[in-house]
Nucleic acid binder design. Structure first.
Lengths: 397, 397
DNA sequence: GTGTCGGCCGTCTGCCGACAA
DNA sequence: TTGTCGGCAGACGGCCGACAC
């Protein structure tokens, strides 16, 4: 059974929240804990007000993955004067969820820095990433056939129920209570929580099936329950169905979408005005807005070369973290013609386990990997030499 | 009860179909009769291979209507070098239907003409529009509360059943048959068609409720049955729910969409290469790809002036045609700054019935109206004078 | 500890003609 | 001619512990 439990005793260090989630703006901004729980452990959003690097190529990959369409006219994939990476001020980040599917996504407002601002950049403060994005008091269960069938309710794992749900009155027989949980949109769902059977177990009965029907859950999807900081029960879902058919997109051709994001970025860069993008962590192959500090550290303060071994984190189907090792097999432009001198996926890699390596990326970006410099370097089976050391010779920012 | 029946005796003049629907291309191209029946009587698609005029402004309006969002950054609504109307060769038109909602839309591939091609244009042949787009042997019924409740089946109007469905064997008691109807996607739906009750009536029983559930039909939506040219029963729906909530659009900001369509059109115009657009007849306020012949006739061969009376066709909620009369109150650019010399909605109008006039357009395009020159001109209550006669002084095409 | 099943109600689905608009 | 209703029978939803993995 797939698990994903954090049972650390609610380390509620209190006021460390960002101002966003404390405000509780009308409907605009939903619960940050829940959003991050649904997004998965590896997803982190950059801090509001910080500086970030935006990659049009990565953004384009998200469009391509969402529309399941290749770009027909390749000439539109480049855009006159648009650089492959834009250093931006991150003005705003808001978390959202699709009304239909509950899929989480983020909206970001970016403003490209003026050349002067880029020059004035002092050595970056070592901004540490958003802490405590993943909630501590939650559980995530992958739904079984019995959970989703119409025949019965939801079987709650014992430790999960005891940790996340309010305690039952065990003097009753059977012990019962009503649970009210809020989803990402703030809608409330009522469940009858009962402790019964032989052997005894926790079950959600009345109210469960309407929830399953409403959210169109099937066996294999996951449900998340969170006991939030302000003592509310929250609830989210992660759908298993990776092969989402196809975005209908009866609105705009995928070519126009690609050209649209490029033109919007180019327009914003030319006028130093803000622009808006959507980041969909479950659909996008890689993050395409990353903290400037992370970029600088990876690109300018890390020495990598062909043959070097590295480690990289992944989230698997159930959004659990797993680690893979590999070897750098090359460093070059992903698309030398349209995006020369781009850092996006500039590292070609080979993975240790060839079994699962098939569907993993053959190219990664520098900031995604952890070079293993502390360890003695293996004798690289490919025995490649450094053809093109990229450690210098690039325009300084 | 709202009706929309064509009971003219199946004037199957035979081979007049365009090649598209006769081929029956795999899944790409769906039934033309059904598509047009769902789109409604006023929607006509330009002929493949013909010349058309494309209006970026109108396309932009469709995006705005679909996303329910105003354009935030107005500077992007203009695009350097993009003219307000592009004369194009229409390479392809394919009819589609949204997989989720069955909403019909069309995909068009347009190629802007080169300046040379525009010069070489000889006097246009009087291309008459697509004939027989609306099927002759169909009926459309707005669903009642009883039709959509779980309590019973679908009550088929008598004349409709006798005209469109295969004849029952009235020697049985009760007369029953199984109907199989194909929807826009080619999916088959089975219904038990029975003639019973006191007084006798036609009903669809078994199979009806699963259809209602699957298509999420509610009272007020309409269903269309067609007996097609090739003796198949086809079925389509028109949803009543005008106020569709909001396109989630977690993919691209609406600003990027606007810029995308403009950039795509500008790119295609600059390179004389084809580009692709989607036309959604139920969502778009007006057609933004119109036959060149219609444009030329309206703009160059029709004399209009302020104070002139005209007639215009509309489709109401149920896609029936209705006519309204009005008076031209002005002729001017809709957006003189960003789209100077545009013919898009260049005519300001006042409607005769002020009651329903509130939600009708205050501006229309020349080709949408029928000037009433044959009739004696009314004394215009606004008593406006022609401030800016637009009958000449424009660049010839 | 928990996934699945048989058993057992109760509710709802869905087919029928009656009746009235 | 057709929209809605009461009546009725059967299907399915949904709560229970048994049992096995």
């Amino acid at each position: 059974t797939v698990w994903d439990m954090k049972l650390s005793s609610s380390s509620s260090s209190g006021s460390g929240l960002n101002s966003q989630s404390e405000e509780g703006e009308k409907k605009k901004c939903l619960n940050s804990e829940l959003w991050h729980a649904c997004a998965g452990p590896l997803v982190s959003l950059p801090q509001i007000g910080s500086r970030v690097v935006y990659f049009p190529q990565g953004h384009s990959e998200q469009i391509a993955a969402s529309t399941n369409k290749e770009v027909v006219d390749l000439t539109i994939l480049s855009y006159p004067g648009l650089r492959p990476q834009l250093i931006c001020q991150l003005h705003n980040v808001t978390m959202h969820a699709d009304v239909e599917t509950d899929e989480v996504y983020a909206q970001m407002t970016l403003q490209p820095l003026t050349p002067q601002e880029q020059k004035d950049m002092c050595p970056l403060p070592a901004v540490l990433g958003n802490l405590r994005q993943q909630p501590t008091n939650y559980f995530c269960k992958t739904l079984t056939a019995s959970d989703t069938s119409t025949h019965g309710g939801f079987s709650v794992p014992r430790r999960a129920a005891e940790k996340v749900f309010p305690p039952l009155d065990y003097t009753q027989s059977p012990p019962v209570q009503e649970l009210i949980a809020k989803d990402l949109h703030g809608n409330e769902w009522k469940f009858r929580h009962i402790f019964r059977g032989q052997p005894k177990r926790h079950l959600l009965t009345t109210g469960w099936s309407v929830f399953v029907t409403a959210k169109k859950l099937v066996a294999g999807d996951s449900i998340i329950f969170i006991w939030s900081e302000n003592n509310q029960l929250l609830l989210g879902i992660r759908r298993a169905s990776r092969p989402q058919p196809v975005m209908p997109s009866s609105l705009l051709s995928s070519d126009s979408m690609h050209i649209g994001l490029l033109a919007a970025a180019a327009h914003a860069d030319a006028t130093n005005s803000p622009f808006t993008i959507f980041y969909n962590p479950r659909a996008s192959p890689s993050e395409f807005v990353i903290p400037l500090s992370r970029y600088v550290k990876a690109v300018y303060h890390t020495r990598v070369s062909v043959g070097m071994r590295f480690r990289m984190h992944f989230k698997n189907e159930e959004s659990s973290v797993c680690r893979f090792m590999g070897t750098i097999t090359g460093i070059s432009d992903l698309d030398p013609v349209r995006w020369p001198n781009s850092r996006w996926r500039s590292v070609k890699v080979g993975w240790d386990e060839s079994t699962a390596g098939g569907y993993r990326q053959l190219r990664v970006s520098l900031w995604e990997i952890e070079p293993l410099t502390a360890y003695p370097m293996y004798t690289c089976p490919f025995s490649l030499r450094t053809k093109r050391p990229w450690s210098s010779g690039f325009p300084s920012i």
